[in-house]
Simulated assay, not measured.
Amino acid sequence: MTDDTNDQLEQQTPEQLAAELRQRVACLQRMGRNDLLLQAIGVPLLEQLRIEAARGNLSQLHIDTDYRFFLTAYNNREVELSPVHKAVYLLFLNHPEGIEFKRLGTYRTELLRLYKETSRWTDVDKVAMAVDRLVDPFDNAINEKCSRIKRAFTSLMDEYSASYYIIGSHTLRHVSGSSRVWYERLKVITLPRHLVVNDNAPRP
Rank of each mutant, 00 (worst) to 15 (best):
L91I: 07
L58M: 05
L28T: 04
N94W: 06
L104M: 12
T106G: 05
W121H: 13
N57W: 02
L36H: 12
D158L: 05
L104N: 04
K187L: 01
H62F: 07
L112G: 01
K150Q: 12
E97F: 02
V79Y: 01
K150H: 13
T122A: 11
R133G: 12
F101R: 14
R120M: 14
V188R: 05
I166W: 04
S119E: 12
V79G: 03
V131I: 14
A53G: 10
V175I: 15
V43G: 03
W121R: 14
I149S: 01
W182S: 04
F153Q: 00
T72W: 05
V196Q: 03
A26F: 11
L112A: 07
T122Y: 11
R55N: 05
E97Q: 15
Y183N: 03
V196T: 05
V79C: 00
W121I: 06
C146F: 05
D64R: 03
L37A: 04
G98P: 09
R120H: 14
E47L: 13
P137W: 09
L28Y: 10
T109S: 14
G168I: 08
E184Q: 09
T109A: 15
L9I: 10
D139P: 07
P44Y: 08
L93D: 01
K187S: 02
D139N: 15
T65G: 10
P96D: 07
H170D: 09
S176R: 15
M157R: 03
T154Q: 11
V124Q: 14
T72H: 07
P83N: 08
L104H: 00
N140H: 15
V131G: 03
R133C: 09
Y183F: 10
T72M: 06
Y67W: 10
L28P: 00
K116I: 07
D132Q: 09
E144C: 10
L91Q: 04
L112K: 08
D158E: 11
K145A: 04
L114W: 02
H174C: 06
I166A: 03
N94A: 15
P202H: 02
D139W: 08
H85D: 09
L91H: 02
R108N: 02
T72L: 07
R68D: 03
V127F: 02
E20L: 12
A141T: 15
N198S: 08
Q11H: 10
H194Q: 15
N140L: 14
P137K: 12
R193A: 02
V25Q: 04
L186Q: 02
E117H: 08
F138Y: 13
N57R: 11
R173D: 13
V181W: 04
L37S: 01
